[in-house]
């Protein structure tokens, strides 16, 4: 555990809580892609199956359980409790275009051809692209509420901090997880354009972020 990893995990947690609280307090999930949230729930579900097989640390177990619970709570709020506010008309990203290549790749490129390892690899690759329905939705509607952009900012920050964590671990521990690092870098690149808009429009302006 290093400071980048810890800060990355905290950013990830903050992002998820921001989104959950936004939906809970406003009793609305307008502008939120339910598809992205289902994909994230799928990411956690397939990655954390090792909760049943290996014990890493108390921190590890607690965080995994929290991420799983919060991601399912978010999906529940969007599709059940506040489904009247769900903007399905604009949440039209074709998820199968992500799932098919990701499933294919996880069978081709993995550390071991075992069910748990393939599912772990699937979750890593899927996480890299899971935000795309949300970004697509923002592009389609041309705007995002500021709370939604704060959520995306903390998600992107989490990715950036994980890269710093990998640089640190590579130098200090000789640790290098090629699958996680490559897809993590790809994932972070997706946020760069958003980061630029966030700084130039949300932080300097106020309220909603609208696209040019």
């Amino acid at each position: 555990m290093n400071i980048f990893r810890l800060a990355g995990d905290v950013s990830h947690l903050v992002a998820i809580i921001i989104l959950l609280l936004k939906i809970w307090r406003s009793k609305s999930c307008a502008g939120i892609s339910g598809k992205s949230q289902v994909l994230f729930a799928l990411v956690f579900s397939t990655r954390y199956l090792d909760l049943f097989t290996v014990f890493v640390s108390v921190y590890n177990v607690v965080m995994k359980v929290v991420f799983l619970a919060l991601s399912y709570a978010t999906v529940y709020l969007i599709y059940m409790r506040f489904r009247n506010s769900y903007d399905s008309e604009n949440d039209t990203f074709r998820v199968e275009f992500l799932l098919v290549p990701v499933i294919g790749l996880s069978f081709l490129e993995n550390y071991a051809f075992t069910p748990l390892e393939i599912l772990w690899t699937f979750s890593i690759f899927l996480e890299a692209v899971a935000i795309m329905p949300q970004l697509f939705m923002i592009t389609k509607t041309g705007e995002a509420e500021s709370i939604t952009t704060h959520y995306l900012f903390f998600l992107g920050l989490y990715r950036a901090l994980y890269i710093a964590n990998w640089v640190w671990r590579y130098h200090m521990e000789g640790f290098f997880d090629q699958i996680a690092v490559v897809s993590g870098v790809v994932q972070t690149i997706f946020y760069c354009d958003f980061f630029y808009l966030y700084v130039t429009r949300v932080l300097r302006g106020k309220g909603k972020m609208s696209l040019p």
């Binding site: 990893r5 990830h12 090792d50 290996v54 748990l116």
Partner: peptide, 10 residues
């Protein structure tokens, strides 16, 4: 290197 089936990151 990477030890299979021991992913310590979240």
């Amino acid at each position: 290197g990477m030890k299979v089936e021991e992913h310590d990151e979240l």
